[in-house]
Design a protein around this nucleic acid. Structure first.
Lengths: 200, 200, 200, 200
DNA sequence: GATGAATGAGCATTCATTCAT
DNA sequence: CATGAATGAATGCTCATTCAT
């Protein structure tokens, strides 16, 4: 029993892992299902046993990776023991930027496939079994802050979009400037947005 | 000769126009070169006479459309006779949002294909023969303002990315809020960014 | 044991029944063994425990259904208490046409899969346990008639083929006329064939 | 020009011819488009240039073959110089039976794919360029006969269905009797049907 | 007996690109 | 310049069948 279940899980994970590898190196359009199964050492039919098609595995991959990333950021910010909400936001943004800078394939993959919808979904799920939900944590941080914010969700949306939209080209292509050069401007912009949304 | 030249131009424009129509309705992946030439009433070989491949015509299309849009914005802001740079930026942003809101196919097309690189290219070309260059105009506006800005290009980049990243989901999917609801927040964010970048 | 036996029978019958349902709605080519077992709530392997393949279950299904139909016709004609053989034949033909008209899926299934060989086989088996054999009954009717027929089997073949060949398109597609309009012509043709085969 | 046109026609005919060969030997289900193009010495894409799919070429093939057959029958009956309509019908039926008996693959192909709809279509087209239409000729024969028939089209339908339904098993499987043994019974049945439909 | 995960051969179909006319 | 017939590699997907549990 355990054997069978293990085997199932192993195959599914092999596909998952291999797909990520190929999507990040060759791109989705250039990756054929054949490529994935060949490299995963699994029969073609097995792929369709676990995923509807190429786009199904892609979506699951994005959700999974985004979730992982925010889970880590969440855990890290707690250890950092910051008091100010503003500082926490900047900390999280920097944490994620650092992770992505270290991992260009992941960056690339996310850059080309992320949408707010997918993102929101990922953020609203536990990072892994037993893990807590990023979105809830974020809202909690806001509640505990000394300042009050009028529409925290719209503010979050604005910050997330600004950050991702500006980080992709700066990290991946250093255009128009490198991420290092851009960071101070990003911090400044985020602080400005937070300040502008204060309701007190 | 004039006739022949006309004919040439007409075919190229037919392809250009038809490609836009199909890209915006079916998406690029689902649009085959055959579809384009069939509808344009041109032979398949003719397509390859004018464009390298599907992606070539797409890039030219984006550049063209983005340019057209900013050309209009540019012309409009001049007529509006605003003194303040801040007001001009908001005006331009609103102008473009209005245009895109009225034209969802265009919005969709741009949303799925825009990158800062393409964008920059488009902004650095004359909108049409005889038209002036948007980027230059923008820089001129900054110079003439009573305030001084430290790195106008990075600031422009930040604003452009923030605007496009937040407008696509709000216009196209009204998610997380409609563009109407989001606009005040966008204005506030943009003004905050401008303020934060002032060097005086 | 009884329980076990019951379970076995139930599974086989579930497969049998489900297959008929799917064959008549989707057609045989479009029905996969997976479809059958899924809907029957049985494992895939179980299918192969009872049937060689898709075509095996189809043949068994046709035999079963044809047999059922003729068994009913046979029982009905006896109750009708007709003296004349000619009248009995017409009665049976009408009975079957009525049944098929009421049950288009069955009609469709039979129309697409019937062959004289299968048919003959079905007619030569008891309709169900304890039931008598249609073919034998038919021959008995002929013997008891006041007229003599030279080659009753060839005559039966001729009538069966004529009837089925003309009923399928008229019932299913009302082409070239509806079954209602065609019936008098069919009766006339059958009577003519019977008359032509009389040996006295 | 002529060269190009010729080439086109040659390819299409190669596909047509090869498909018939394979359909009659392996059956349609077991014939892959690959088989057809391989043997026809044509690229796979070329097949889809001329036919929508496997079933498209099959339908065109049936129409073509049925038409050819009836065209020949039609030409032959005219030479035979028979006066009586009844004799002409029997002559045509025999002619076609002879042709099919000589050509079992054709018989097989038609047997498995014929439907009254397809048949009617085929009969209502000129056999080849310049050829006349079988259906019209048939109706003309009836007009010129000394007898009057009430519904010639229903009668034709009845005879065609009876003939095809009984000939297929007798020719192909000699079941329940050989075509040779069955012929007199068929003639008798047809004459009976004709007689039964006379309106005078 | 029963299960259902795994298989992988097999197939239809698409489409960018070429090149003889 | 323009054409459009021909190509054939590429690919997504299905499904009958097996077999370890």
């Amino acid at each position: 029993m355990g054997k069978l279940e293990d085997n199932k899980k192993r195959k599914k994970e092999a596909l998952f892992h291999t797909a990520f590898e190929l999507f990040t190196t060759k791109g989705i359009n250039k990756t054929a299902v054949s490529d994935i199964v060949d490299r995963a050492g699994v029969a073609k039919g097995t792929f369709y046993l676990y995923f509807k098609d190429k786009y199904d595995i892609r979506n699951k991959l994005i959700t999974h990776k985004a979730n992982e990333l925010f889970g880590m950021a969440s855990a890290s910010v707690e250890k950092a023991a910051l008091n100010d909400f503003e500082d926490k936001v900047i900390y999280i943004v920097d944490f994620i930027i650092d992770q992505l800078t270290k991992n260009p394939p992941l960056m690339n993959f996310i850059a080309k496939n992320l949408s707010w919808g997918v993102f929101k979904t990922a953020l609203s799920q536990p990072a892994d079994e037993g893990g807590s939900i990023f979105y809830d944590k974020f809202m909690e941080m806001i509640q505990n802050d000394s300042h009050h914010y009028d529409h925290p969700d719209i503010m979050l949306f604005t910050i997330v979009e600004l950050t991702s939209a500006t980080c992709f080209p700066t990290i991946l292509e250093a255009s128009p400037v490198t991420i290092g050069e851009f960071k101070p401007y990003l911090h400044r912009a985020i602080r400005a947005i937070l300040y502008a949304n204060r309701g007190d």
